[in-house]
């Protein structure tokens, strides 16, 4: 076996894949959030639609989007494989009495949480991303732009008139927050970044990130529902 395949199939190598793809997804969330917050501007969707056009046409962003699709798949598949082999490593008998510390709730359930997130991502992609690329969206023209752009804003605003979707998005964001509650710190530990000075800081930032980012995401559908 080449050194690389040895590394990538080792327990630590497999976890490094989780960590790096997880890091990428975590950073992506922040960028995605900043873009989406434009939905809350009172401009009938102009800023958001122009931004959506840019994100689907800029070659650099397009390249990054392929990395994103690959990361989601790799992270999800690797995560499930690790989960399965860990289950096997526990053996067939489990303890009659289980002692679970409250601090371990998120970390012990990463795979379940991840599967829920994966289902969310599929529905979310179908609902907006697929429609943006291949759906029949109406075009709008804005002053100062030479080309018409697709009105993704209307699709989003229409979706969030439905209370069911709003609730679904809010709950999903809670689940993402739970995943990050453990994942943020964990990704540093996995690539060996643990330091008596900086680890408490990483844990603090991770906790804040896991709360604030999903919360701001969740605010968007709620506000749009209330405005509709």
């Amino acid at each position: 076996m080449s050194w690389f395949s040895k590394f990538i199939t080792s327990s630590i190598g497999q976890k490094v894949v989780m960590s790096l793809t997880g890091l990428f997804l975590t950073l992506f969330l922040a960028v995605h959030l900043l873009g989406n917050l434009q939905l809350l501007q009172d401009d009938g969707g102009e800023a958001f639609n122009v931004y959506a056009y840019f994100m689907t046409h800029n070659p650099l962003i397009k390249t990054i989007s392929y990395v994103l699709y690959a990361s989601i798949l790799l992270h999800a598949i690797q995560g499930i494989l690790i989960w399965r082999s860990n289950k096997a490593a526990r053996g067939t008998h489990r303890y009659a009495v289980n002692h679970v510390r409250s601090t371990e709730r998120a970390s012990r359930n990463m795979a379940w949480i991840g599967i829920v997130i994966f289902v969310f991502i599929l529905l979310h992609l179908y609902q907006f991303w697929f429609q943006m690329h291949w759906g029949n969206l109406v075009y709008v023209e804005y002053d100062g732009y030479t080309h018409p752009v697709k009105d993704l804003y209307v699709l989003v605003a229409d979706s969030y008139k439905n209370l069911g979707f709003v609730v679904f998005y809010v709950i999903s964001m809670g689940v993402v927050g739970f995943h990050l509650w453990h994942g943020f710190w964990s990704l540093f530990q996995t690539i060996g970044l643990n330091h008596s000075k900086y680890t408490p800081l990483i844990k603090g930032i991770g906790g804040a990130y896991a709360v604030v980012v999903p919360l701001l995401f969740a605010v968007i559908p709620v506000v749009m529902y209330l405005k509709s």
Binding site: S10, S11, N86, A89, T103, E104, S107, M110, Q189
Partner: peptide
Amino acid sequence: MDAEGFGKCSNVTA
């Protein structure tokens, strides 16, 4: 460690 069939670390810290 891997050959012995131990699991992979999820940083649970139990």
